[in-house]
Design a protein around this nucleic acid. Structure first.
Ligand code: SF4
Ligand code: SF4
Lengths: 135, 135
DNA sequence: TGATATACGACTATTTTAGTCCTATTTAAT
DNA sequence: ATTAAATAGGACTAAAATAGTCGTATATCA
């Protein structure tokens, strides 16, 4: 309930690592995994997603790895969350255009609008926190 | 990921209903369930918890039911969440005193403190929204 | 005494999250 | 050329959290 997924935590960690190690060489998934003591493969996937969303840039091959694509103060935690979590929303009905599919109670529901307001405020918490602030 | 549980949604709905129907008679779980088209039993449980936490008062028997224990502007969404969700926290390590039990990565983790700050901000979103504001 | 309500524990099913495994491709160094 | 180290990414499994049901006890009114 209102918990951050490990995926997001790993993305924060990885981005943080890249921000702190921007000197010349590319940082690898393995390197990051060992530094934070987390699964190599999970970090690898998260990095791939960060790359896809232009938060990081990647280089393949033996001396390959990742670097950040922007300055740490230009990347918000919101950017990272949105990149990594397809389902970041307080309720199901906030994803697609609301239908019976997304929530069977949508008909009689009277808390949708207030919750949308809450959602915005929570979004803002993450929008207003840059990667730089968690270094 | 950062989703409200149905339990919490039902608690919001139930509290809202009680706030809007405070005229004399006690509101029953069945009544609320029908009004919002949700499971009778789930609402019942949620109401029991609200009672336990002094957000609502209950009366047993044939003409029994529930009423709010405070005015809608004296009840925050945070109160309701805390009542209903034992595990409302961004990360596992924020629950008990952090040990290896709560998170195996706690040793090398460098994002715990920043996340604690985020947690407070999110708490404040719910603390600063009263039941009255979602009527 | 029957009907209707709260109270509450145990259980099941479903969904989401976390994590692993496997294979392909790219590239630097030997 | 070959090998080793890296990204890229799909398929799969395991574990945990969520959602929902069932059954039974107790209280109260008519
Ligand atoms: S219950 Fe209401 S708020 Fe919750 S998902 Fe359904 S429509 Fe949205
Ligand atoms: S990874 Fe860090 S922040 Fe996340 S639960 Fe473990 S200690 Fe807490």
């Amino acid at each position: 309930m209102l918990k951050l997924s490990k995926k997001t935590e790993y993305a924060f960690m990885a981005a943080r690592y890249l921000a702190l190690n921007n000197s010349g060489h590319y940082s690898t998934a393995k390197e990051i995994a060992e530094n934070y003591d987390i699964s190599h493969q999970l970090v690898a996937k998260v990095l791939q997603v960060l790359k896809k969303n232009n938060i990081a840039a990647s280089f393949q091959g033996v001396k390959g790895g990742y670097v950040l694509n922007k300055k740490p103060d230009e990347i918000t935690l919101y950017d990272i969350i949105i990149a990594v979590e397809e389902k970041y929303k307080l309720t199901n009905c906030m994803h697609d255009e609301p239908t019976e599919e997304s929530c069977s109670h949508i008909e009689g529901c009277r808390i949708r609008d207030p919750l949308a307001g809450i959602q915005k405020k929570i979004d803002n918490v993450f929008i207003n926190t840059s990667l730089k602030q968690i270094l």
